[in-house]
Each structure stands twice: as structure tokens, then as C-alpha cells.
Simulated assay, not measured.
Amino acid sequence: MLTKEEIKAYLMRIGIADIQPPTLSYLFELHRAHVRSASWQTIDIVAGRHTPIGVHESVQLLSSGRSGYCFHLNGAFSELLRSLGYQVAWHRAGVQPLGQEPRINSFHLSLTVTLPDEHQQEQRWIVDVGLGDMPYEPLPLEMGSYDQGSFLYKVTPSGVARHGWRLEHDPLASFPGVDIAPEVLTTLDEFQQKHDFYSQSLESPWHQLFLVRQRHATGSNELRGCVWSRRELRDTVKTEITTQSVWREVLADVFQEHLVAYSKEERDDLWNRVWSLHEEWKRAKAAVKE
């Protein structure tokens, strides 16, 4: 559990002023603030930094003005929620990439929160601040369709986990969905090997993919290398960024990412690597057109 000072530091990081009792409305406020303020990102992976996924290390990561990907974000958020009095459960999950089959392979940590409803009956909520551009608010663990800003989500039974559930992404989004197993985990040991692969292996899909994603009330932002995609309602505008100064401004102003753990030399090295990867991507794209 976090101390009161640690809770305050975390809440300040995501722009929440007050500690409140564990209500549904406060859970929604926390979730919205978290996805707006703490982006999903592969920055440390591209930079060659291995960042631990223990909950206390992840809380320190967030509180110091940094961020990470699902294991860090959902791990830290679950610790904050527990410290505030919420009943939180960890679940194995798997994100389905475009063109591939659904799976539960522990490459994603999913959360549920149980709260009493207006009739004092327990109701479970899907809580996930570690999926980048989904969702903006908690979703009830009830089958159906849910509209959040410019995104339409569906909660359906999972086809790959008995008694599990699936969160389907918007049809125009970056991946089809995520499947979640119903069993409740008591440690994060299940995810350590996966994290080691994603963050350190040269075969990791993120080893050379600089990717930052963030949700807000009416849409989302993504910075993929040097391409900034802004989605509002059903429209997406893409902008190529060609200078480090603008790239840094977008990271800071849009994604709240100030690269606080990087020296000037390291920030320059990171930009040069990202720009080199971007030019390589453009050459490959041009070759395909030919």
C-alpha cells in the first residue's frame, strides 16, 4: 500500500487535487485523468533502457513524471486504487494485432474493480489505463456496446478463455481488441518474462518502434516515430514532424512527456535514432510503391 504522501504525489502527477472515498464517480475521474496525463509509450525500450514492472517501481516511475506501457501503467494504477480503498483484481490478457487471431498470452495486464451499485449489489468494472487509445473511462463488465467520445467499444464473451471476456476496439482503431482471462492473479510474476522480451530482445516488435499514445474526451493522439496522428470524432489528421524542437514540443504539450530522465545529450541521441528509423520507414514505404 502507498503512504498518504505517495498517494498525493501520484495524484498530483495526474492532475487530481484531493483524496476522496472510493466511489464510482471518483474512479471515473481517476481513470480519465490517468489516460490524459500518462501516455502509453515505448520510449525507454527504443532508448535501450530496461524499466522494472514491480508495482512500487512503477508508482515511482509515474510519480517522477515518466510513463511506460501496460505493465507499468496498470500496475501502478492498481496500487493507487488499492491504496485508496478500491477492490482491484489483476488478470492475464492478450492484445490481438491486426491480421492475427485473438489470444491470451500474458502480453497484457488487465484490471477489474468491484464496487457496490445503487442497490448495494456488487458490480465489476473493466479498468484499463494501459491500452493507449482505449478506453477513456471504465466500462461495466456487462455484454454490450459503449460509446466513449469518438470511439465505440464492445464487451463480448471471449472466444479463447472460458468465462473470460473480450473488449473490442473501435472499427477504425489500431488493433481489433483484447481478451481477458477470468482468473485473479496475486503476483505479477506471470508477466516478467514477457516484459523482459518486449523491453530487451532485439526481436521485440517495439525495439525499433517509437510509439506514444494518449486518449482524451473526444479522441486520441499518437506519435509513431515522427508522424503525429490526431483523431477527433471520425476524422484523423496526420502530420510529419521534421525537427527535434517541434517533436519535443508535441511530446511535452500533447503527451505530457518531458523526457525528464534524459540528459540533453541523451535527448539528442534519442531524436537522432527516431529520425533515422523514420527515414528508413519512408524509404521502405517508397520502395513498396515502386
Rank of each mutant, 00 (worst) to 15 (best):
V155F: 01
R213V: 07
G94T: 09
S63L: 01
V250F: 01
L62G: 09
V250E: 06
K285S: 13
W40A: 03
V59E: 05
I14D: 02
W281N: 15
W271I: 08
Q96H: 09
V246H: 11
S67A: 15
A252S: 13
E137W: 07
K154E: 14
G144Y: 05
K154N: 11
R267L: 05
S158R: 07
G159E: 13
Q121M: 11
E280R: 13
R230T: 13
R13P: 09
T114G: 09
L270Y: 04
K238V: 09
R273Q: 13
Y146F: 15
A181Y: 07
S78H: 01
E183F: 11
L80C: 07
S201M: 00
Q60G: 14
H195K: 08
H258T: 13
E203S: 12
F255V: 00
V288F: 11
E137P: 07
A173F: 08
L185S: 08
A38C: 15
C226G: 02
P205N: 02
Q20E: 15
G85F: 02
K289I: 12
V237T: 14
A76H: 06
S263Y: 07
P22N: 06
L172W: 06
G177A: 08
L139K: 01
C70E: 02
I104N: 04
T112Q: 03
Q87N: 14
R103M: 13
E249T: 12
L233V: 12
A9V: 09
K194M: 12
